[in-house]
Design a protein around this nucleic acid. Structure first.
Lengths: 126, 126
DNA sequence: CAGTATCCGAGACGATACTG
DNA sequence: CAGTATCGTCTCGGATACTG
C-alpha cells in the first residue's frame, strides 16, 4: 500500500473532487420538482403530456428543464419515437428507481407526521 | 359505516385539505438547504455558529431562515440559554430524526451512484 | 405533441449594518 | 453570539409564441 506523505496528496484531491461532485448531485436532486417527477413516474413509462398531468401544478418549462437534468444525470431514460406527431416517453433507470425508494420514504414520512406538523405550526404561528 | 352520498362530501374536502398540506410540507422540506441542515445536525445538539460551520457554504441568512421553517414544522427544537452572550442550541425532534433517516438514504444513494452519474453526464454533455 | 426561445415579475440569496 | 432588517443581484419560474 502506498504511504500517505502529507495532506494535499493526490488521494485527498480525489476525495475533495468526489465530495464536490456529490454535493452538486445532491443539489440537483434535492429540489421539489425533481423529486415530484421521480415519484410521479414510479415504475411506469409516461409520455411528456401524461407526466405533466401527473405532477400537479408543474409548468411546461419546469418539466422539460428537470427532465433534461434527470436525463443528464442518468436517472431517467428518454425514448423518442420518430412518428408524427412525435411521441416521447420517459421512464426511470436503475439508479432512478433506487432513488425513488427513498423518495417514497419521504412521502410516507410526510403523511405519517401530518398531524404533528399541523399542530406544531399552529403553536408556532401564535 | 356511513354511506358516501356523492363526491364533494365532507370527507373529500378533508382529503383534499390533507393533500394540499402534504404538498406544502413536502415543498418546505424538499429543498437543498433544509435537507443539508437536517443531515448536518444528525443526533447532535449544535449551536448556531457550529451548525453554520457544518453546513458548507450556507449563509447566515439562509441558515436562520431554514431553521425557523424547520422549527415551525416541529422538526428541530430551539433552546435559548438566557446568558450573555446568548447561547442557542438546535437539535432534531422525533419527527426530525425520522426524516433524517430518509435523508441519510439519499446521501448514501448519491455516493453509491457517483460513478454512474459522472459517466452519464459526460455522455450527455457530448 | 414535444421542444425551444423570449420576456418579465417574484422570490432566493449574499453582503452589510445594526440590536440585545 | 444570535438575530433582524435592508438592499442589490440574480436565478427561478410562469406565460406566451414559435418550430418540426
Amino acid at each position: 500500500m502506498v504511504t500517505k506523505q502529507f495532506s494535499g496528496s493526490a488521494e485527498d484531491a480525489d476525495l475533495a473532487r468526489a465530495d464536490s461532485l456529490a454535493r452538486e448531485i445532491f443539489s440537483d436532486v434535492a429540489n421539489k420538482w425533481a423529486l415530484l417527477i421521480i415519484e410521479a413516474l414510479g415504475d411506469r413509462t409516461l409520455r411528456f403530456s401524461a407526466l405533466r398531468g401527473e405532477v400537479d401544478g408543474i409548468s411546461h418549462k419546469m418539466l422539460t428543464q428537470n427532465l433534461r437534468m434527470l436525463e443528464r444525470n442518468g436517472l431517467v431514460e428518454r425514448t423518442v419515437h420518430p412518428t408524427v406527431p412525435p411521441r416521447v416517453e420517459y421512464t426511470l433507470t436503475g439508479p432512478g428507481r433506487a432513488l425513488r425508494a427513498t423518495v417514497d420514504a419521504m412521502c410516507a414520512w410526510t403523511h405519517r407526521h401530518l398531524g404533528h406538523i399541523e399542530t406544531s405550526r399552529r403553536r408556532f404561528d401564535a
